[in-house]
């Protein structure tokens, strides 16, 4: 930081905010992943979970400034992640085409996430619900990448050349 001068906008904010942003990175990521992973058991799912993780990108861009932010956060990567999420979601839907589009072919089967659950209240088992957790994961990736991409683009105002 420049001696005795206010930090320039591109350098980000004070070391306090930078440290707090780094400290918050892990809890925010874990909480977002928890919301995505438990989408079939508790309120939440891919949309809110992805939005929670995308706030981390906004926090980092504000804390570390747009120069560092634009260098560290690759737009092409987020664009690719977004595509992977949406295509993965559509692919999971297509895989059930044996009986119908969006058929939950993994539920109550011996495969992944295929555990059958008893009717009524139960403690909530992770390996249930068939394609729903996988679709939550795909949607979470898509929402996280799309929101991050929008935040990065608006924040850096397209000054990448």
């Amino acid at each position: 930081m420049n001696k005795g001068m206010a930090p320039r906008e591109s350098e980000g904010m004070t070391p306090i905010i930078k440290t707090v942003a780094l400290a918050l990175a892990v809890p925010i990521t874990v909480f977002g992943l928890y919301i995505i992973a438990h989408g079939h058991l508790t309120p939440g799912g891919g949309f809110p979970g992805g939005a929670v993780i995308a706030t981390l990108v906004a926090l980092f861009l504000i804390a570390f400034g747009k120069d560092i932010g634009a260098r560290a956060l690759n737009k092409k990567m987020f664009s690719g992640l977004e595509t992977v999420g949406l295509v993965g979601f559509a692919l999971l839907a297509f895989l059930g085409l044996g009986s119908s589009f969006f058929n939950n072919f993994l539920a109550n089967s011996p495969g992944l996430f295929g555990m059958a659950i008893p009717f009524g209240p139960n403690p909530g088992f992770m390996w249930t619900a068939g394609t729903i957790p996988l679709m939550n994961l795909a949607i979470g990736l898509e929402v996280f990448a799309a929101l991050s991409l929008i935040i990065i683009l608006f924040f850096t105002e397209g000054e990448d050349k």
Partner: peptide
């Protein structure tokens, strides 16, 4: 619950 195996009916 029986058809999808999901506790969360909204999901």
């Amino acid at each position: 619950q029986e058809e999808t195996g999901s506790n969360n009916i909204v999901a």
